[in-house]
């Protein structure tokens, strides 16, 4: 569906995207995660034909994004991160205008989406709240039932209830076999709907995998209470263990991967209690960002 090969995009001496390789299969919901300024929006703007790659190529539906952009965009729905709509138009007239340019009729789907999002289609967009403008943007992206939906920070400005509705909508799209490229700096919203997640930072793809794979890389904070205090040095060189500290009779450390070596080391003493707290994915990604920075 999407094939990105050695994509680089430079703005003068600034490297926004650096040698990015990525492949997304049909029907996949792909989460594209990274901090602000990581290169997410630049990558997306190359996908939708606004920017020309400095190096490399991007193919969607087997066609080149730059030279065959118009054909590709007929099957894409796009919601920009910075959404600016014609203020004097209503959502209905905006979607009708875009439908004429797409040479299609989206009236029925527009009405259905408006009911789902509870949006008044006949109010001028300039009079809508930020959340409702975002809904209008989502409706124009979805109304022609695209094969590929490209969403840049789609839940920005939506209240938690609408964020929930939106995430459910992503689930429906996946069931219908539509492909979604979803960018966000918030992992929590992406991990609930994405099949795979790619992490971009400073223009480079740091990591890519399923949510489960990325979770496996997560670290755990381990607390072991002993009957008698052990020496911290006993745990300093244990495989997969770091930051070992003794507080009274308690060992606090961070464990990554297999727990076998740590458990065997602890078993040399009388263990009273063991607590394990899994680091959440948000912290995993924050660590990645920090490492890269």
């Amino acid at each position: 569906m999407i094939s990105i090969s050695n994509l680089s995009k430079h703005y003068g001496s600034v490297v926004a995207v650096d040698d990015l390789n990525l492949s997304i299969e049909p029907g996949e919901v792909f989460g594209f995660i990274g901090p602000n300024g990581a290169g997410k929006t630049t990558t997306i703007r190359v996908l939708v034909g606004l920017l020309k790659p400095t190096r490399g190529s991007v193919h969607i539906f087997g066609m080149d994004c730059w030279s065959d952009g118009a054909k590709i965009r007929n099957r894409i729905g796009y919601l920009p991160g910075d959404l600016y709509l014609y203020q004097k138009m209503t959502t209905r007239s905006l979607v009708r205008y875009f439908a004429r340019l797409r040479n299609t009729d989206t009236a029925a789907e527009t009405d259905r989406l408006a009911r789902q999002f509870d949006l008044d289609l006949d109010r001028p967009i300039g009079q809508l709240s930020k959340g409702n403008r975002q809904k209008a943007g989502l409706i124009q992206a979805l109304a022609h039932r695209p094969d590929l939906l490209v969403l840049d920070e789609p839940t920005a400005g939506l209240d938690p209830l609408l964020q929930q509705e939106f995430l459910e909508l992503m689930g429906h799209m996946r069931e219908r076999g539509q492909t979604v490229f979803l960018s966000s700096h918030l992992l929590a919203e992406v991990e609930r709907v994405a099949d795979r997640i790619g992490v971009i930072n400073s223009g480079q793809l740091n990591r890519i995998g399923t949510v489960a794979e990325l979770r496996a890389a997560a670290r755990r904070i381990i607390e072991i209470r002993f009957e008698h205090p052990p020496a911290a040095s006993e745990f300093a060189d244990v495989e997969g263990v770091s930051n070992a500290e003794i507080h009274g009779t308690m060992l606090k450390c961070i464990a990554t991967g297999s727990m076998d070596a740590l458990m065997k080391a602890a078993a040399r003493h009388t263990v009273v209690d063991v607590r394990s707290q899994e680091e959440n994915l948000e912290e995993v990604f924050l660590d990645m960002y920090r490492e890269n920075a």
Binding site: L50, G69, R73, P80, Y84
Partner: peptide, 14 residues
Amino acid sequence: TDGTLELLATLPIA
């Protein structure tokens, strides 16, 4: 300048 070109230019028109 207004930002509206971003959506217009990503419609299926050359």
